[in-house]
Computed example of a mutant assay.
Amino acid sequence: MSELYIGLMSGTSMDGIDAVLVRFHGERPELLASHAQPWPVKVANRLHALCNPGINEIDRMGEMDQIVAVHFAGAVRALLAKTGHHPNQIRAIGSHGQTIRHRPELGFTLQIGNGARLAVETGIDVICDFRAKDMALGGQGAPLVPAFHQAVFGSHKGPRMILNIGGIANVSVLPGPDDQVFGFDTGPGNTLMDQWYRKHKGGHYDAKGAWAASGWVNTDLLQRLLGHPYFHMPHPKSTGRETFTLPWMELFLAERPPMRAEDVQRTLLEFTARSIADAILPLATGVKEPELFICGGGVHNDALIYRLVDLLPGWQLDSTDALGLHPDWVEGIAFAWLAKSFLDGRAGNLSAVTGASRQAILGCLCPAN
């Protein structure tokens, strides 16, 4: 049986589709090819709009469910064209889909990108809807990547942390073999910075954090943001862009004298850095030179990374490149791994991470035939 898988990921930042072709050697993934495909501007705008309550949501969601699947299929074809592989050589696609709503407090999470349509369009079996089973078992449905992180990044030398900075930031804590793996969403990653940048600059994101670096932190606004109740909740916990929204942040802006847009951006960057540092510093109590390896789009935000270095003195910080996986493709590879886990009959969640009552096989199969 072929051990070639494709992983598909589009995160809460909605800047594009990541597609990876992966060969597995046991648990260890080998990245054979990757493809990044930006969302067309009109599609991205419609996806962003779906993340907030609005008129005619069900019809708009149904239409976008098909459109996302078609674009995912296009990314798969482009990926295979790079290597000359044929669809019948791929055992399965692991598709995360596109999250448009994450409401664990209400017992649901919603990812679109119709698996059946994707299977028909590509001629490859699709494993999708990975989060629903965990939520049915009382879990948060997120984050799912810590089980993958443990499989490929776990160290027998001692504790190690993997930080993914996407739209939302999450951390996996990988202790020695006798301790329990856990992880949780620390709070906002790029989401607020990206939303503010789109509003004032029109682009997708603040490259390298250059615009934020031109501003100054407003300590009053920062403290208001850090006062969000989410940061005082114990883990297991997860969150989404529905929680940390621009309208929520702008309520605090309205209470004070006008600020320069770049100062708001700098304060939002500090908010992300501080919320991450505040969440992970207590996890390393008593550990000499804790290790933190970073992946996701935030790894390219130089200003953010510099702040994390400042806020985590004595820590060893690096990207997951140092562990053998390029930081841009870790999440895509994770969903290829989850597809393999499904077909191998292996659990894909960790109860200590999501709060589910037990570990379980995650996902649903959409056959191509």
Rank of each mutant, 00 (worst) to 15 (best):
I90F: 04
G11I: 07
L362G: 03
P282H: 06
L292A: 12
F184D: 09
R198P: 06
R358D: 11
R60M: 10
L47C: 11
E291Y: 04
D65P: 07
I67Q: 13
V126A: 11
K199S: 12
D310F: 03
S13Y: 02
R256N: 10
N88T: 13
A81Q: 14
F252M: 07
E121M: 11
Y306W: 09
T109C: 04
A254F: 01
V22W: 05
D328F: 00
G141F: 07
I58M: 15
T272P: 07
I112Y: 13
A147D: 00
D220R: 13
H25E: 15
A352S: 15
I127R: 00
D178W: 01
C295K: 07
E291H: 14
I162K: 00
G240W: 00
L323Y: 09
G166N: 01
G139R: 10
G240H: 00
V41K: 12
S214V: 02
G54W: 06
T83F: 07
N52V: 13
I58H: 12
L137R: 11
V70F: 13
G62A: 12
H71A: 02
V173W: 15
G11A: 09
R260L: 14
A75E: 10
L312P: 02
V217M: 04
M161D: 07
R224F: 06
P229C: 12
S357W: 05
L144Y: 11
L311N: 04
F335Q: 04
P188G: 12
L304N: 03
S275F: 02
A33R: 05
L343D: 04
T239V: 02
M259E: 14
G84C: 03
D185C: 06
I112P: 09
P175M: 13
G107Q: 11
V264P: 03
W216N: 14
G345C: 08
R103F: 11
R103V: 02
I93Y: 09
G84P: 01
F184K: 10
R117H: 12
P236W: 11
L283W: 09
L323R: 13
T186N: 02
R198A: 12
P104C: 12
I361T: 15
A69F: 01
L312I: 05
L31N: 07
L292S: 11
A360C: 08
L311M: 13
L50Q: 12
Y5E: 06
F335K: 06
L343T: 03
I93M: 07
G203W: 03
F153T: 10
A78Q: 15
T320A: 05
A19V: 01
V173I: 15
A273I: 08
G11M: 07
L226K: 08
P258V: 13
L325P: 01
L308I: 06
G286A: 07
G97E: 08
L311D: 08
L4G: 09
P188K: 05
V152G: 09
G286S: 10
H232E: 15
G296Y: 05
W315N: 05
A119V: 03
T267D: 07
H232V: 05
S275W: 01
F335P: 03
S2M: 04
E57F: 11
T243S: 11
E242L: 01
P175C: 14
L163H: 10
I55K: 14
G16R: 00
I276G: 10
